[in-house]
Design a protein around this nucleic acid. Structure first.
Length: 266
DNA sequence: ATGGTCGTCCCACGA
């Protein structure tokens, strides 16, 4: 059972790359972020033709998440609880009936949070929104853990966990992905009992999932690792392999993120 | 460097 996460930076702009990658890798479940389209404009037919069931939680122009699955999807929920006024499409979860077990997967697009400060020197609305979103994710995922289903929270977390996960951490100390408040909430999420898949399975330094389009970041390997799979105990027990598919960053019209793929006995 | 990248959508904004 291969379960992947990929921030595609617009599904419609990325269709050639996505279809090629799905055909090559044939993953069972894919969590997409930044589909940047409304549900009605999601290019369903071409993806369904490859054997996927599709659930989307889209939005015009920005954000938007989706789950693709070769196995049946049920009990889909969208929107992270905890703030009725939050109208950004950043969360979708579902239960999937795998060949061996029922499991839960969520596609998460955690807010970027930059710029951190506004003119008066206080935290910006964007950074406060990010921190609140992380607090809400912690509160809600604690509830998810209580049914003890294998649970995989996959997505673009916009969090660089450690110094070794960025090409030069000193340049990122003030960034919303690397600040102490962000790290505080990241740790508190993990401390609920989640295992970060890469940390368990690999943990080498310099393994990145995002390279900015600007300034030759890819050519110079100035990347950061911000796309993660968080695993409940029942999911962490079944993971066999974790890979970052860097190959797609070299393709025609690539996303600035690459897929992260976990292989599970589920 | 009055820049340098993309995607959305046509004007800046978000990343």
């Amino acid at each position: 059972m291969q379960i992947a996460t990929w921030n595609v930076n617009s599904i419609n702009a990325r269709m050639h790359a996505v279809i090629k990658w799905l055909s090559d890798k044939n993953p069972d479940v894919v969590c997409l972020q930044e589909i940047k389209t409304i549900d009605e404009a999601f290019p369903r037919l071409e993806i369904e033709a490859l054997g996927y069931n599709i659930e989307t939680h889209g939005q015009k122009s920005y954000n938007g998440v989706a789950i693709l699955s070769k196995y049946p999807i049920k009990e889909v929920k969208v929107k992270l609880p905890g703030d009725e006024s939050d109208d950004q499409s950043r969360y979708i979860e579902a239960l999937i009936t795998g060949p061996k077990k029922l499991f839960r997967v969520a596609s998460i697009y955690l807010p970027n949070g930059n710029p951190v400060f506004n003119e008066n020197g206080k935290f910006s609305e964007k950074y406060e929104y990010k921190l609140n979103w992380m607090r809400r994710l912690k509160e809600y995922s604690a509830i998810l853990l209580s049914d003890e289903l294998p649970t995989i929270l996959a997505g673009d977390y916009n969090v660089i966990p450690e110094n070794k996960d960025v090409y030069d951490y000193k340049n990122w100390i003030g960034d919303a992905a690397f600040r102490k408040e962000t790290h505080f909430y990241w740790r508190s999420l993990l401390n609920l009992g989640f295992t970060e898949a890469f940390k368990q399975m690999d943990d080498r330094p310099g393994q990145y999932t995002f390279w900015d389009y600007q300034g030759g970041s890819w050519q110079n390997n100035h990347g950061i690792r911000i796309d993660h799979l968080l695993l409940s105990a029942q999911a962490a027990d079944t993971i066999i392999k974790l890979e970052i598919d860097k190959n797609v960053r070299d393709g025609v019209k690539p996303s600035d993120h690459v897929p992260v793929i976990g292989t599970f006995d589920l």
